[in-house]
Every structure is written in structure tokens, then in C-alpha cells.
Nucleic acid binder design. Structure first.
Length: 116
DNA sequence: GTGGTGACTGACC
DNA sequence: TGGTCAGCCACCA
């Protein structure tokens, strides 16, 4: 039995809800799921995201500073950066520029519009 | 069951 | 956004 799938599944759902040209942080997702201190689990979920049937835009999930800490796990070395730049997000040296502008907060965007 | 590891964060210096 | 420390929980051997 896997009851933890629920938590992971939520992470994937939120990640897929990230709109085009926007990014969010592990902590934001974790907090939205009620596990602010379990941001690591969000990252771990992203690690397993490649194992999911539905692809998860993990490239839109970065750490709080806007650093592409997880780009190492993508096929290419700069694939993650390329994907973000393709969406209009400026990325320099693995760091997202104008993070506040492109940052997508699930707490606000999904406040009452979407509930699990 | 136990212990090491991890795509993090917040608090502190 | 320099550095360290602790917390959190799922996965794997």
C-alpha cells in the first residue's frame, strides 16, 4: 500500500498547475501542502517525477533564491535553463532573473479557486 | 526496523 | 546569498 502517494501526487498536481512563463519554489509547494518544513520531500517528489506517467514541469520548480539547483537531474546540463528561457524567463548562471516577476505562488493563485 | 541520503528552508552569524 | 545547524520525511540498502 502506498498512502504517501497522496502527498507526492499533490506535489505533481501543483507542479503541473504552474502556468507558462511562471516558476515556484519547493517551499511554496510544501507550504501549500501543509508541510512547509518538508521542502525536501518536494524535491524528492521531483526526483521521482520522471517515474510518473504524466510529465511534471520540474524545470519550473526552483529553490527560494531562484537557483536551478535541480538542473543537474535533467538530461542535458543546461536543458532546464533552456526550457525556462524558452518560456520567457531570464536565467543567468543557473539563477532566475526578476524572480519576483515570474514567481507563481500557489497559496495566492489557488487560494479559493482550487482545492484538493 | 535502522541508518544514510537528498532537486530545501529558516534561523542565526 | 556569504557560512553553519537543525528539522522534516520518503526512499533505498
Amino acid at each position: 500500500m502506498k498512502k504517501s502517494d497522496n502527498f507526492f501526487d499533490k506535489v505533481y498536481q501543483v507542479a503541473r498547475l504552474i502556468p507558462y512563463g511562471r516558476v515556484t519554489s519547493y517551499g511554496a509547494i510544501a507550504k501549500y501542502l501543509g508541510a512547509a518544513k518538508s521542502a525536501r520531500m518536494v524535491g524528492w517528489a521531483m526526483n521521482s517525477s520522471s517515474n510518473q506517467k504524466e510529465e511534471v514541469p520540474a524545470h519550473r520548480v526552483v529553490n527560494k533564491k531562484g537557483l536551478l539547483t535541480g538542473k543537474h537531474h535533467f538530461d542535458g546540463t543546461n536543458l532546464m535553463q533552456q526550457l525556462l528561457e524558452n518560456e520567457g524567463i531570464v536565467v543567468i548562471d543557473n539563477q532566475i532573473q526578476d524572480l519576483e516577476t515570474v514567481f507563481w505562488n500557489p497559496m495566492e493563485e489557488l487560494n479559493s479557486n482550487f482545492k484538493f
